[in-house]
Design a protein around this nucleic acid. Structure first.
Lengths: 419, 419
DNA sequence: GGGACTTTTTCCAAGGGTCGGATTTTGACC
DNA sequence: GGTCAAAATCCGACCCTTGGAAAAAGTCCC
């Protein structure tokens, strides 16, 4: 338990300031920042000059103030460098290049299979992709300010062990994450920032999406897998072992459908993409909307719903209602002020799922908890996972490198601690 | 969003220090406090002299240090004054008197009925009980340092409106909580600290019970009602509208038993006292363990289980397994490092419920989340709710009065804030 | 074109915090 | 009584925020 020093206050304030510049739609003034953060104009001045000197912020013109000295407008200095965010999923690797303002510049994509699920192989894919992007943009490596990588599976901050989903057997005793981290550090000359997709997209919502105004936020990821990212007081909540948010494997229907995880009745088995497909199939095993792969099925469902096809709407109603009931539990326990639906299933079907879920939640959530919730679809443009993980890398940058990340103080290596 | 100043650091450190003195089993030394809090010896010295001057701490002897200056032992100055904690429940009012070390000195109890559920009536009961205790102990009012009251139902910090369960109709537009608060303030000359029982008992666990070592804690209350108190980073989590933890009304069995709240299949309907009785009755409507009131039934069940009565054990197994499944959901989402079972049902049946719940959780929780959890029965002696609410009053005292409580800054009354 | 005016921004000294290292305190021991 | 060792305190350094004074940077008017 390292206590907080006054330096932490500075770091937090600087960070808060920066985040507000980022999430504002337009360039902002010092006065607005002071009002927004609650800091005195004097402090805002000190912080901004610091960030201006660093090159992270720039003045972009001025604004009339009615007779007095015009207000300077501040914005993120996009040209100061680039950030890379990489999303390693089970079936693909996607890398995005951002300028420092986190505007997407370019991206690359590559399909992978289970045979690639090894640290070395994944690292090679990542390095190749990023190199390709750099070459295309004629960028030199010294422009790179930070790189963040989202890895599937659960990470363990303390031990640094990541569970590459298919590599658990092969790498049980090794340190796959450490190896991966090392390979990337060698290739790019700076430590990558690693996180899982759930947390990454939560950060993206917090910076740029529906969570900007939220204090206590739940970001529901609806993809092939399902989970929830939780933010308490605008900060990502990780849980004791960085494993919070495994809402997808929460029991919803005792003795229900078999889930990918082997258990039965998980939320994921009903509201994840395979769950939606299963619902469709249960209603009619020969439904023409059914395609070989789930992504195509979801697309078919979306376009059918767009045509007001009653069968598609009925399926979405059913799934949405189930989602709502599951969300009601979350709302009752966490009492968030904002719930955001994100990831690719939500992007394509959220238009229909969200209202149905809201109605479904109303049947089981407590009125007071329900009333507190602002329901939203993801407001993030582009790929939330890459963006979030790039934002995390940026955080590390501003805070002073990834070493500033650990949240608990490390266990002393020598047997020094008594009691 | 008021930013944190260095004063907040001081307050937090002082508070952290004090809490550690409280939750330590014996008197502590400055050195131990420094090691425990991570503060420098210099700072610990400043803080302790401050608290010694306040009269909250005292030196109680010294400890040999092997040739050097002996270490002074510090403890809470129990004689410095008294605190009162009151638990207003639906069927009773209980008041406890504590010394400043939060050792119970005396208590009073009174049964109430639905007709008493009015601010004025409840306040009168509270005042009478506390007066009685003060008279018995020949205490003068100036000895009273703080008073905390737990009220059932959900509170709303922002508006100050409390929902007295049966008074919602009569007081819909009024301010029952404000009225109640005023009546108590008049009677005792100091503002009472109000909280609900769920949060109060969570604080008690955090200070004195199973949560002392926890960072991310879930305190499960098993009484007539069921709920969970959540602490993040050793601090009580309240949620957006102070309504977090309504886990009892989470859906567990779709279309299942009807709950007190009118919905079906709530967790509470299975693992709360009425739920346990219902399980017993479902198995055998004429079971001799069934009594007219649920408390007697729970007692009968406990003593039967104590005699290894197989029917009682089977019921407890069933209830425990259900509890475990429900807890698994909590563990998956929150990833706590400690789960504590408390309140009166847990006190009497926890011995059997806890192991069964642990096993039940294993079937549905993710291995990593499960492995992180330390399962415990409440370690609080005495009545956790009164104790917790007295501790909250103490917190207010140390922080500088109940006014320091609000967590969000109040909305400015004048239309002064632009944008 | 230059002063008056207005509003923003910075400067400065005050005030609150923590901390490392020097210093004092407080015992035991010889 | 002097010496020694460990605990506790004191002190100056350093970091942070902030209110108010001062400076900066425009407009406006004569």
């Amino acid at each position: 338990m390292r206590p907080r020093s006054s330096r932490d206050i500075r770091r937090e304030n600087r960070f808060d300031l920066l985040r507000r510049v980022y999430s504002a739609e337009r360039a902002v003034t010092r006065q607005w920042l002071a009002a927004e953060t609650g800091l005195s104009p004097a402090t805002v001045a000190t912080l901004t000059t610091e960030l201006l000197a660093l090159g992270v912020l720039v003045e972009v013109g001025r604004e009339d103030s009615g007779g007095g000295r015009p207000r300077a407008r501040l914005a993120v200095n996009g040209d100061h460098g680039v950030l890379v965010g990489v999303d390693v999923a089970e079936t693909y690797v996607r890398a995005d290049l951002f300028d420092l303002a986190l505007r997407g510049l370019d991206s690359g994509h590559r399909e992978i299979g289970p045979e690639d699920h090894q640290p070395d192989v994944v690292a090679r894919h990542v390095v190749d992709l990023v190199r390709g992007i750099f070459d295309r943009g004629r960028l030199t490596r010294d422009r790179l300010l930070g790189i963040g990588v989202s890895l599937p599976g659960q990470r363990h901050t303390d031990s640094g062990v990541s569970l590459f989903p298919a590599a658990t057997g092969a790498y049980e005793d090794g340190d796959p994450e450490g190896r991966f981290r090392g390979l990337l550090a060698d290739a790019f000359g700076s430590e990558p920032f690693l996180e899982n997709p759930l947390k990454a997209s939560t950060v993206a919502e917090l910076w740029f999406g529906g969570g900007r105004a939220a204090h206590d936020l739940a970001v529901v990821t609806l993809g092939t897998g399902v989970g929830v990212g939780i933010a308490v007081d605008q900060r990502l909540y990780r849980g004791a072992t960085d494993a919070a948010g495994e809402w997808g494997h929460t029991l919803l229907v005792p003795g229900g459908r078999t889930c990918r995880c082997g258990r039965t009745g998980c939320v994921e088995a009903y509201v994840g993409a395979p769950g939606i497909v299963a619902t469709l199939r249960e209603r009619d095993p020969r439904d023409p909307l059914l395609h070989a792969d789930e992504s195509a099925t979801v697309d078919a469902l979306a376009s059918a719903a767009g045509r007001d096809d009653p069968r598609a709407l009925a399926v979405l109603d059913e799934v949405g209602a189930t989602l709502g009931v599951a969300l009601a539990n979350l709302v009752n326990v966490l009492n968030p002020d904002t719930v955001v639906l994100g990831s690719w299933v939500a992007t394509r079907l959220g238009r229909w799922l969200l209202p149905a879920a809201r109605d479904g939640a109303a049947t089981h959530a407590l009125p007071r908890n329900l009333a507190a919730v602002d329901w939203r679809l993801s407001g993030v443009e582009g790929h939330a996972v890459s963006l979030g993980v790039a934002a995390l890398a940026l955080e590390g940058l501003v805070a002073g490198g990834p070493s500033a990340a650990p949240r608990r103080d490390p266990v002393p290596t020598t047997a020094h601690r008594e009691r």
